[in-house]
Amino acid sequence: MSGKSGSVVIEFRDVGLYLGGKEITQNVEFNVRKGEFVCVIGASGCGKTTLLRLVSGLYQPTTGSVHVDGKKVDGPSRDVAIVFQDYSRALLPWRTAAGNVSLALEAIGMPRAERADRIHALLGKVGLAQHAAKYPSQLSGGMQQRLQIARSLAQGASILLMDEPFGALDAMTRQSLQDEVLELAADTGATVLFVTHDLEEALYLGDRVVALYSNPGRIARIVDIPLTRPRNQLSTREEPDFLHLRRELFGLMEEIHA
């Protein structure tokens, strides 16, 4: 089913969720393996983000269960980090870039003396070493999202949940961040569950793509992406497999929207 042969780290077992009497998610069942990069696509309101909240323990399923590392999720875990789409709301505006990364280190109880080096290394990883003393309001959107990624890395989690992280960014910034996230995922060996409404982004990043129907959110199709890594913004997007999958999924998405 998947290109990677690692053990299963995220399991959706026949998951259903009702919120305020409305059925959000229905019969969702799929697995994510260790180190795998899985993208979830679907129209807005199809419950993509809900799936991330279920894995992160911010929501509890009404029926079925979500398991991480074999254990049933019953609340947030430090081994699961989440990157929100609205970076400007997810960062602490009164803390500098360094201070925002520090929050995650403080949360895991790292002694003060060790934090400075770690913060510097993490900010360096996302290209923000020069901006450590700036407040989020002084950073561009792309930089704020990099900062949120650095904070999620600081948590030391092996599972990274990303909720349309580049949806609000311009095309150039989005492409460079896509490549940075692929690099970071490869470096850290993290398992990534990535939600997007951008079909091409899903194909470019993922090992697999999970497409969802709307109202309620349920799985329409799960597609393996056999494109070679490392991926390249130009050549990958020109590969016959890419174009073929794009056509296929595009058709599916039109069907979903209809």
Binding site: S56, L58, P76, S77, R78, V80, A81, I82, F84, D86, R89, A90, L92, L103, A104, A107, Q155
Partner: peptide
Amino acid sequence: RLVEVSRALH
């Protein structure tokens, strides 16, 4: 969102 961030960070 910050409440969620603080929950996710424990």
